[in-house]
Nucleic acid binder design. Sequence first.
DNA 1: ACCCAGGAAATTC
DNA 2: GAATTTCATGGG
Length: 271
Amino acid sequence: MGKLKFENVHPFDLAQTLDCGQSFRWVENEDKSFSGVVRGIVATAFYENGTLTIESDFDLDEKMWKEYFDLDLDYGKIKNDLSKMHPVLEEASMYAGGIRILNQEPFEALITFIISQNNNIGRIKGIVERLCENFGECIDGKNYAFPTAEKLALLSPDDLAVIRAGFRHRYIIDAAQKVFSGEIDLEKLRIMDYSKAQNELRKITGVGVKVADCVLLYGLHRLESFPLDVWMKRALSVLFKGYKGDEFGLYGGIAQQYIFHYSRMHKELFV
DNA sequence: ACCCAGGAAATTC
DNA sequence: GAATTTCATGGG
């Protein structure tokens, strides 16, 4: 049984952070708190007046949760610096500046972003949930941990029919096998030269540049990563003419997430 | 019926 | 080699 309180957390917005398409397992409750599972721990998060509270029936590791929500990084300063780079980025940071880049489990980021390809966020959530319920360890009767690489590595693509992810089934199995066998060591990607890390991930069938960038950003905290999906390509061509996505430096991943969220919430900009 | 979704592999030109 | 088609599935 645990409760953590982090005070003076600014800038921060729980809904933006947990529902902006980087993580697919948090569910909003009626009181605006969010419940989810991180590293096998069921927890509920709530944010009010600068204080982020995490509660659980299980013991909570303060360091792990601080890291998960990236509380040691000065987002105020980063937001300021990014705002100076481009007027539209300033606008996007005003709108989406409560987002933090989560420190998710690398394997979970890998599998969920394989599932994300040519898919929409609502459906991704459903597939991920079925994946956990069918193949993850049951924690408390109704919540499930994300499945381990070992568990998935021993399955065949047809075993995944219950999650209804279609052509991605064989990609998921290939990823699990390469991680479980040690052929790919996800932890090593944290400090590896960026393009090397990208190529390492691309050895997995079903992982191209975009999925690799997402895994590096959301699972391995490579904040320089700037994933280009259909939304970002649209946003760059319409709002950042001439930009390729490599202009935002060390914290480009944060800029990317501001722009992604801002664009998704302003569809009218792209008609 | 058609089009699209946080793409990438397979095929064709 | 670059451009196009196909790949499951579900919602609008």
